[in-house]
Simulated assay, not measured.
Amino acid sequence: MSGVVESAGSGAARRLPGGQGATGLPDGRAGQNGTVRRALLDAALEVFAERGYTDAGLTEIAARSGIPVGSLFQHYGGKRGLYLALWEEFREEQERRTAATLAAERDRGVDDPIALFVAGARAYLEGAWDNRRLGRLLVGDDGPSGFDALRRQWDRAWVRRNARLLKVDERRRAGRVRVSVLTTVIGGAARELGDCADEPEAREIVDEVCGILIHLSAPPG
C-alpha cells in the first residue's frame, strides 16, 4: 500500500488499458468515458469485495455497472485492469491527502522532520479508515498475477520517501532499518483499521499508532 509521501501521481493508471490520463477526446466524450469508468470501478469493487478477485466474474461486474462487457474490455482490458485501477485510485487519493497535510503543516511553520512524518502518517491512516473497504481488498492475498511484486516495489519506494522526509541517511543500514520498521508499523495499522467496528475505535488506533511513531522516530542517542 501507499504511504507518507510528499507528491502525488505515479502515472501508472495512464499505462493501464483505458488508462485514466488525458484522453485527447472532446470534453463531452471525455466526461462520458469518465462516467463509464466510474460505474465500472464501483461495480468491480462491490464484486471483488463480495467474492474475491479470483471468483469475481466480468459478466456480473458489467451487469451491476449497467455497462456492456465490451465497454469494460475497451476501458480496462479485463479483470486485472480493473483491480489495478482501483489500486492506483487508492494510492493517488492517499498521496493527495498526505501531500496536502504536509503542505499545510509547512505553511504553519512546522519544519521538524518527525512532526511532519507523524502528521503525514496520521493523514494516511485516516485515509485508510475512510477508504477501508477498498483498503481491505488491496491488502488481501487474492489479487491478480504479478500484483504482489508491484506491491513490494511500491513498498520499497515508500520506505525511500519516508527516509527523505525524516532526513535519514539511507547509506547507513541502521537508518534504513529504522525507516523500514516505521513504514511497517503504518502499513500494519492501516490493515487493522479495516477491521475496526466504528470510528471511535479507529481514532483510538490512529492516536495510539502516532504515539508509537513519535517514540520510534527519534534517532538513537
Rank of each mutant, 00 (worst) to 15 (best):
E105F: 05
R160Y: 12
E192D: 14
R38C: 05
R37T: 07
R91L: 09
P200Y: 04
V168S: 09
H215W: 13
L86M: 11
A8M: 12
Y76S: 06
A13L: 13
R80K: 14
L150C: 04
A85C: 09
A104W: 04
D142V: 00
I61H: 03
I67N: 06
D111I: 09
A8Q: 13
A44H: 02
A157Y: 12
G175T: 02
L25H: 07
V177Y: 01
T54S: 13
I186G: 08
S2H: 11
S180A: 15
R108E: 13
A202Q: 00
V206Y: 00
G135L: 09
A157M: 15
I212H: 03
L116D: 03
G18I: 07
G9L: 07
F147T: 01
A197E: 15
G28P: 14
G19I: 06
R80P: 08
T35G: 13
I114K: 06
E201C: 06
E199C: 05
G143E: 00
A149R: 06
T98V: 15
L125V: 04
L193T: 01
E201A: 13
T101M: 10
A190V: 03
I212M: 07
R14P: 03
E208W: 05
R136S: 09
T35V: 15
I67C: 09
Q94F: 08
V185K: 08
D27A: 15
G194V: 04
S10D: 14
G21Q: 01
